[in-house]
């Protein structure tokens, strides 16, 4: 069962390391999370596809209670670990949909 999302007022601290650990565990078995550079292109290298984007969005909700608006579920926001952190932080601050 997903954890109860934290209160909306708290802006969670989204970490690159957390995201990298999830991406590696889910999509790159056998790779050390430390090897995954925050700017590594996950889309071009087919690590994640559109289904993968949904998996990551679900995980962001479960892990941080961050719900991404549909408009943010676009490839450009999931291209790298850094991009995923950025879109999550924007959504957490209520600036989603950019």
């Amino acid at each position: 069962m997903p954890a109860e999302p934290p209160a909306a007022t708290a802006v969670p601290d989204v970490l690159d390391g957390d995201i990298a650990a999830f991406v590696v565990e889910r999509f790159l078995p056998g790779v050390d999370a430390g090897e995954l550079d925050p700017d590594y292109d996950l889309l071009a290298t087919a690590v994640i596809d559109s289904l993968g984007i949904l998996h990551i969005a679900a995980w962001l909700e479960q892990r941080y209670g961050i719900v991404l608006p549909d408009a943010d579920l676009a490839g450009r926001n999931f291209r790298t670990v850094a991009a995923i952190r950025a879109v999550a932080e924007r959504a957490a601050r209520g600036e989603g949909g950019a």
């Binding site: 790779v31 090897e35 995954l36 590594y40 889309l43 071009a44 290298t45 087919a46 596809d49």
Partner: peptide
Amino acid sequence: VLALRQHCAQRSARAAV
């Protein structure tokens, strides 16, 4: 593996990675 994926991505369509 990450470097190999990049190698493939630079040379072929995404479906072929």
